[in-house]
Design a protein around this nucleic acid. Structure first.
Lengths: 339, 339
DNA sequence: TTGAAAGCGCTAACAA
DNA sequence: TTGTTAGCGCTTTCAA
């Protein structure tokens, strides 16, 4: 049982470095910030002093004086469990982290469940970060959209709330769904059902629309659909509801690979073969798509690149550059054994 | 499209609140920090001003003045890919986040190998956080051990480096391994091999020791082992090496469920039935253990609780309370079909 | 219970 | 190229 002293108040300051080096604080500051206009000899002396003292700049003081935090937040409006279950988040973060490691920004993850939405907002407004990446999904994203009007925010996926000018990096969900559905049609399927995503998310709505318009264009019926929450469990129960309807279908477009994998289990239980009885296509080239039985034909959504792009756009916004309000990432079909 | 902030563009300051409320800055500060000695009427007036202005305290200024950041870091000394592949990290973070949401600390994730080690150290030393949780593993953790001598750090798992006093929240890996091996013995297995974890990690070493001593105590041979890196792929190749030796064994203790799942595939390829030909036990009650074929008998390591405990210990350290230098989390056996 | 005043450690004009 | 001088927005003695 022992207690530890709070960080002993003896952290070396810039002033101490200046004294030891025999120069002014400004000069030390310039050296620390790699200003080009300092004589090499002085730089050397100052650096020596920094080393002997073990000096590390105080971040709070720096931020207060410069109005820059050098860090940005990645906001995930989901609970922790869902955050870790969904490979999409992992990829986006990886992409963002990868891009930022080339800069000197730090990434702070904010897993913002509905309960502490307030806490998150205060965090962003309190000057903790220079900007934020928001993986927006649900219709309650209005507060972020508002915040985005006078604070640098880049949305991953189109926010549901209207109003103002938003910066978005997205995939064309309508087109992605259309590709997946067209693949089913190309394989001769004529009765194509869908398990749609949540209808309070843009991705959910857009993918449903892509399914509908593609079928209508092909002169095929577009009536069989059930919505779920993008999870395997949700996909499974939607599949059951679809089967309970008793209508026949030979194709299924699931709006996410996680839902598709849930649906596959139910199909199997009901003695329906894939792709024999029902052809299946989906979106997301993740673990679930690759390891499903059979492996799923899917539309690859480049989440890692999306994360990197989001970070890039945000950093450029912070630096005051002009950036496009909308960046669309390309998608492409990956054919496997499910259709 | 309504904006929340005054049109001035810059965020409202404490001073502006004071002016609007007709009190001094000190009083506003007291209200913001819930000081008990402010008249209720004044509190009300100030709060009204805060609301109309949409005031949020500036974190940097606060930190600079108070020497408190109200945030702590969770350092993960692995690359991003491994971070997301290992459910252990997910659980620990979830536990820590859960505990911290009850406090007003914010959690900042530092995936340490993304940035170089130097960058992380500077981050911690630069006053960005009040303390850190370090999921220490490899033998290169000396710098954290050193930093821990005068900065609040709680290690998840015993660090490899010696020296000084460290605060650790761990499971008894020797005992956990012993439990898993004993289970094999209890099922009549007499030739028990092991796939050990990395020998530069405490968990790797301790689990190997638990295997060895348990066998020796039982008067059984303890010679068949191969080390791997805790991943499925590593487990698979260690399994191959084990088989290549040509020695017979009827039991296998894999030091992690991920390695066990990799080993299972190799066993199957070689026509060895589990548990018929080889009984298998492991450690970690995660996705890999539950979804293996057959499901794995394993020792449950309560990672979520460990994360919560780590956060709790750290917060108490920061608050200057006395805490134990070592906290051991309980483990327990979960019997499934693999033995 | 409240206010005045002195910094916290740094950056950034402006001078020199 | 270097130093001087103000702050950045807040907390915190110390008086009143």
């Amino acid at each position: 049982m022992t207690s530890l002293l709070p960080t002993s108040g003896s952290a070396p300051t810039l002033e101490m470095v200046a004294a030891l080096a025999g120069v002014s604080r400004s000069t030390v500051s310039r050296v620390v910030n790699a200003s080009p206009k300092v004589t090499p000899e002085v730089v050397e002396i100052v650096n020596a002093a920094i080393v002997t003292l073990g000096y590390v700049p105080n971040r709070a003081a720096r931020t207060l004086a410069s109005r820059k935090t050098d860090s940005i937040a990645l906001v995930i409006p989901e609970n922790t469990a869902k955050f870790f279950a969904d490979p999409f988040f992992a990829s986006v973060i990886q992409g963002a982290a990868m891009f930022l490691s080339k800069t000197d920004y730090t990434l702070t993850l904010l897993i913002a469940s509905e309960t502490d939405a307030q806490k998150t907002q205060r965090y962003l407004r309190g000057g903790n970060v220079d900007g934020a990446l928001v993986l927006s999904h649900h219709s309650d994203d209005r507060s972020y959209v508002e915040l985005g009007q006078n604070f640098p925010i880049v949305f991953g996926g189109r926010p549901m709330s209207q109003g103002g000018r938003n910066f978005v990096v997205d995939v064309d969900n309508v087109a992605a769904a259309a590709t997946a559905v067209q693949c089913l049609i190309d394989h001769g399927k004529t009765n194509i059902a869908t398990i749609a995503g949540p209808q309070d998310m843009a991705a959910g709505l857009d993918r449903l629309e892509g399914w509908r318009t593609t079928l209508e264009t092909a002169g095929l019926p577009a009536t069989l659909f059930e919505a779920a929450d993008f999870t395997p469990a949700g996909g499974a129960s939607a599949m059951k509801r679809l089967l309970d309807r008793g209508e026949r279908f030979d194709g299924l477009f699931a709006a996410s690979a996680q839902m598709a994998s849930g649906a596959l289990g139910v199909l199997r239980e009901h003695g329906l073969a894939v792709p024999g009885d029902v052809g299946v296509t989906t979106i997301d080239n993740d673990y679930y798509a690759k390891n499903a039985n059979p492996p799923l034909t899917t539309v690859d959504q480049p989440s890692m690149q999306q994360g990197a792009k989001m970070a890039e756009v945000l950093v450029r916004m912070i630096d005051g550059e002009d950036v496009d309000t909308l960046t669309i990432m390309p998608t492409h079909l990956i054919e496997r054994a499910s259709v």
